[in-house]
Structures are given as C-alpha cells and as structure tokens.
C-alpha cells in the first residue's frame, strides 16, 4: 500500500453552481494511472463544466479535488486559495484539449507546442523546438511544423492541440469533445491519435459523443445527466446492458441516430 502512487485525479463531492442553477451536483470521480475514462451524457448535463472544475478553470463551489495526492486549487486543511503561481503549476500538470479549435492562430504548429515549454517551463527555445517536433511527430504532423493553424485542417489542428497538451508532460489529459467541431471525414484521424494514446496507457478523461470510440478505448464509462453521475460501468456492461433507465434511453436515442452497432458482451 505504501508504494502505491496516488491517483492522478481524485475528486469527491464536486458541486458547481452558476447563479441559481446547480450544474454539478455531488460528482465524484477517481481516475487511476493509465486509465481511460469516457464521460458521456446529453447536452447540458455538465460534462464540460466537470472538466473545467477538475482543471481549475472554473473552480468548484464545493468538493475536494486531488491532483496526484495534492489538494488542487486550495491549500490543504483550510479552504484558502493557493497562490496564483501554485495554481499555475498545478494547471500545467493537467493537459486539456478543447471542443473548439483554439490553437493560437498567430503561431505555427511548432510555435503552439513550444509556447508552454518556453513561457511556463522556461526552456531554451532550441530545446523547446526539438521537443515540440518530437510531439508533433507523435501525432503525425512533423511535416506541418511550420504551418500556421489557418493552413491546417480541423483534424490537423486538433492533433496539434493534443501535441501542445502532451508537450507539458501532464499527469492526466482531459478531452472535451475534441471531434464535435470537425467535419465527419476528419474525426477519424483525431480519434486514431487518441486511441493510440489510450493504448500507451496515457491517463485520460474523454468527454465524447463518439460511442464507438468510448466502447473501444475506455476502461470505464461515466454517464452523466443533469449534473449527476447516473451510471458508472465498464464499456461492455454500459453499452451491452445499461443498468439505469436514463442510460438506456440516452443510448437508444444516440445509437439509433448514429446507427452504430455495438456488440453485446
């Protein structure tokens, strides 16, 4: 027991309100090292908000988050906020890939990947570029290193965004519907990169509407509705034999729309 490293992310009792609306209501989630958790659920169920809480972009109103055993955002013991520098250090250990295409348009692909290494890690430019190229290679975009985002397809942009997150060598990677802004023919290349990361046991939390990806890549499915975790299960049991009525209805709607065939266990 003593030798076991603490989980990259462990959250308990997360509550997040926007005005009168409770968007996250007592959500708990622990992700083990190397585990891939897919979060699915209808629009507005709080999936994005959960990721934003877990990365302290939107600090939760209640609950406790631990990043590799270290209290996130707050000084342990009290409810005092950590210093801005501490929060930055913690955030840099959490990688995030967003739904929108939000590479920095004034920097090249390599520039986007280098930026955090140079400004946050204070790495010399040459070293940062070398690392950036290695990460671009990992997502299959070494040839596009000097292209500006406007010259890249949406799928390529998301792959650069993945490289940008990976370059910081985070404890854990969060994906918020990274393919939902893409043209259908570009979805595959991004999911391929994510699938490869999953097989390399990168710790990931993936919010997605891509049920076949969730079925294949996830170790665990988290189904959310109205700010709560409704069901937590392995992909086989969730897709094959959902326990909850709400999960079943959601799957019926979604799977019939995407006309997906999922094998029963």
């Amino acid at each position: 027991m003593l030798m076991t490293a603490p989980p990259p992310i462990s959250a308990t009792g997360i509550v997040k309100r926007f005005g009168a609306a409770t968007v996250l209501d007592d959500v708990s989630l622990t992700v083990a090292r190397g585990e891939v958790v897919c979060v699915i659920g209808p629009s507005g169920s709080g999936k994005s908000t959960l990721l934003r809480c877990l990365s302290w972009l939107a600090p939760p109103d209640a609950g406790r988050i631990e990043l590799a055993g270290e209290r996130l955002g707050l000084v342990d013991g009290g409810e005092r906020l950590r210093s801005a520098a501490e929060i930055r250090r913690q955030r840099s250990r959490i990688g995030m890939v967003f739904q929108g295409l939000n590479l920095w348009p004034h920097l090249t692909a390599a520039g986007n990947v280098m930026e955090g290494l140079v400004t946050v890690r204070r790495m010399p430019k040459a070293k940062a570029r070398e690392l950036a190229l290695a990460h671009l290679d990992r997502v299959g975009l070494l040839a596009k290193a000097d292209a500006y985002p406007a010259r890249l397809s949406g799928g390529q942009q998301q792959r650069v965004a993945i490289a940008r997150a990976l370059a910081m060598e985070p404890e854990i990677l969060f994906f918020d519907e990274p393919t939902s802004a893409l043209d259908p023919e570009l979805v595959g290349e991004v999911l391929d990169v994510m699938g490869a990361l999953a097989r390399q046991h990168t710790t990931m939390v993936v919010v997605t509407h891509e049920m076949s990806f969730a079925a294949e890549a996830a170790d665990r499915i988290l189904f959310m509705d109205e700010g709560r975790v409704v069901e937590e299960a392995t992909p086989a049991s969730f897709f094959g034999n959902p326990r909850e009525e709400r999960s079943r209805r959601f799957l019926d709607r979604t799977l019939s729309r995407y006309r997906l065939l999922v094998r029963s266990p």
Binding site: S55, L57, A84, A85, R88, R89, R91, S92, R93, I94, G95, M96, F98, N102, L103, W104, E115, G116, T119, V120, A161, R164, A165, M168
Partner: peptide, 9 residues
C-alpha cells in the same frame, strides 16, 4: 483557456 490550462499566467 488554452493558455491558462498549460499553466500560463
């Protein structure tokens, strides 16, 4: 958000 999430101030 992308900047903040990699630890930029």
């Amino acid at each position: 958000d992308a900047g903040l999430s990699i630890g930029m101030s």
